[in-house]
Simulated assay, not measured.
Amino acid sequence: MIPAHADFDKTFPFAPHFETVNGFQMHYVDEGDRAREVVLCLHGEPTWGYLYRSLITALCGDYRVVVPDHMGFGKSETPQDRSYWLQDHIDNLEKFVLQLDLNDVTLVMHDFGGPVGMGVTARHPGRIKRIISTNGPTPFGQPDGLERLLKNAGIAPWFQWIVKANEDGSLEQVLGQLGFNILSAMKINGFENHAVISDTWIAAYGGHFSTPRDCLGAIGWAKGFATGVHRFEEPDAAAIAMIRSKPALAIWGDADKTLHADIFLPLFTVLFPGADVHRIPGAGHYCFEDAPDQIADIVKRFLQNS
Rank of each mutant, 00 (worst) to 15 (best):
residue 1 M to G: 07
residue 1 M to P: 11
residue 5 H to C: 06
residue 7 D to Y: 07
residue 13 P to F: 02
residue 14 F to G: 01
residue 15 A to T: 13
residue 15 A to E: 10
residue 18 F to V: 04
residue 20 T to W: 08
residue 20 T to I: 15
residue 29 V to Q: 14
residue 30 D to M: 10
residue 31 E to N: 11
residue 31 E to H: 11
residue 32 G to R: 12
residue 32 G to I: 11
residue 35 A to P: 08
residue 35 A to H: 15
residue 35 A to C: 09
residue 36 R to Y: 06
residue 36 R to Q: 15
residue 37 E to T: 04
residue 39 V to D: 03
residue 43 H to Y: 02
residue 46 P to W: 04
residue 57 T to Q: 14
residue 59 L to R: 03
residue 62 D to Q: 09
residue 64 R to D: 00
residue 66 V to F: 05
residue 67 V to Q: 10
residue 70 H to Y: 09
residue 74 G to P: 06
residue 75 K to Q: 10
residue 76 S to M: 08
residue 80 Q to G: 13
residue 84 Y to Q: 05
residue 85 W to K: 12
residue 85 W to Y: 14
residue 96 F to Y: 10
residue 96 F to T: 06
residue 98 L to V: 14
residue 99 Q to P: 06
residue 99 Q to N: 13
residue 102 L to V: 03
residue 102 L to A: 04
residue 102 L to C: 04
residue 108 V to A: 04
residue 108 V to Y: 03
residue 109 M to T: 10
residue 111 D to K: 12
residue 118 M to L: 15
residue 119 G to Y: 10
residue 119 G to V: 07
residue 120 V to M: 10
residue 122 A to H: 02
residue 122 A to N: 02
residue 122 A to I: 02
residue 123 R to S: 02
residue 124 H to F: 10
residue 129 K to S: 15
residue 131 I to L: 04
residue 133 S to M: 08
residue 135 N to F: 02
residue 136 G to F: 03
residue 137 P to D: 10
residue 142 Q to I: 07
residue 144 D to G: 11
residue 145 G to M: 14
residue 146 L to Q: 13
residue 146 L to M: 13
residue 149 L to I: 13
residue 157 P to T: 07
residue 159 F to I: 00
residue 160 Q to C: 01
residue 160 Q to K: 14
residue 161 W to Q: 12
residue 165 A to M: 08
residue 166 N to Y: 14
residue 167 E to W: 14
residue 167 E to H: 15
residue 168 D to V: 12
residue 169 G to I: 13
residue 169 G to D: 08
residue 170 S to H: 08
residue 171 L to W: 10
residue 172 E to L: 09
residue 174 V to K: 12
residue 175 L to R: 13
residue 180 F to Y: 11
residue 181 N to E: 04
residue 185 A to H: 03
residue 185 A to C: 12
residue 186 M to Y: 05
residue 190 G to Y: 08
residue 192 E to P: 05
residue 193 N to H: 05
residue 193 N to M: 02
residue 194 H to D: 14
residue 198 S to A: 01
residue 202 I to R: 08
residue 205 Y to I: 03
residue 206 G to A: 11
residue 208 H to Y: 06
residue 208 H to F: 07
residue 209 F to M: 12
residue 210 S to R: 15
residue 210 S to T: 15
residue 212 P to A: 07
residue 213 R to L: 13
residue 216 L to A: 10
residue 216 L to S: 08
residue 218 A to G: 12
residue 219 I to S: 00
residue 222 A to H: 06
residue 223 K to I: 04
residue 231 R to D: 00
residue 242 M to L: 15
residue 242 M to T: 05
residue 243 I to L: 02
residue 247 P to H: 01
residue 247 P to L: 02
residue 252 W to S: 01
residue 252 W to A: 01
residue 252 W to N: 01
residue 254 D to A: 05
residue 261 A to R: 12
residue 262 D to I: 04
residue 266 P to I: 11
residue 268 F to A: 12
residue 271 L to E: 13
residue 275 A to K: 02
residue 275 A to I: 01
residue 275 A to L: 04
residue 276 D to T: 12
residue 278 H to T: 08
residue 278 H to C: 05
residue 280 I to M: 06
residue 281 P to E: 09
residue 290 D to F: 08
residue 293 D to I: 01
residue 293 D to A: 07
residue 294 Q to W: 00
residue 296 A to K: 05
residue 298 I to Y: 06
residue 298 I to C: 03
residue 300 K to R: 15
residue 305 N to F: 11
residue 305 N to E: 15
residue 306 S to L: 03
residue 306 S to E: 06
residue 306 S to N: 14
